[in-house]
């Protein structure tokens, strides 16, 4: 599965497990963030939040990371823990001092945002 890795590009596309990467000057930081977020799971679905397509946007630069993400359903009881998990894992990366996580409900998450791998895992057909 390929994620965009386009330096300072500002593309936004949310389909099929892809996430918009913005203003990332360091390609290696880009990959580190993606790898780190792959270790955070949605506990109910038991799959990582990146492949589930829950992370909509990553904006990194100057020691700061802004994450725009969603949950599988509004009012998910695990929301606080997932957000705390994202903040914690990103906090372990060198060069990142500030982490801001914003949970949004627009656009609403749907299974079509999953990566092909996750879709296959859950048997999602469309």
């Amino acid at each position: 599965m390929a994620y965009p890795n386009q330096g300072t590009g500002c593309h936004t596309y949310l389909d099929q497990g892809r996430v918009a990467m913005k203003n990332i000057s360091e390609p290696s930081l880009n990959q580190q963030i993606i790898n780190a977020l792959h270790t955070v799971i949605d506990p109910e679905l038991g799959y990582n939040i990146m492949d589930l397509g829950l992370v909509y946007e990553i904006h990194a630069g100057k020691g700061q990371v802004n994450i725009k993400m969603s949950m599988t359903t509004p009012g998910c009881p695990a929301q606080d823990y997932i957000v705390a998990g994202v903040r914690h894992i990103l906090g372990t990366l060198s060069g990142i001092q500030k982490i801001h996580v914003q949970v949004v409900w627009e656009p609403q998450w749907h299974p079509g945002l999953m990566s092909e791998k996750a879709k296959t895992h859950f048997g999602v057909t469309s």
Partner: peptide, 14 residues
Amino acid sequence: FGIKLGQGPVPRVQ
């Protein structure tokens, strides 16, 4: 396990 999320491996609910 919620508190351990992002700090290492955690089990799934399942």
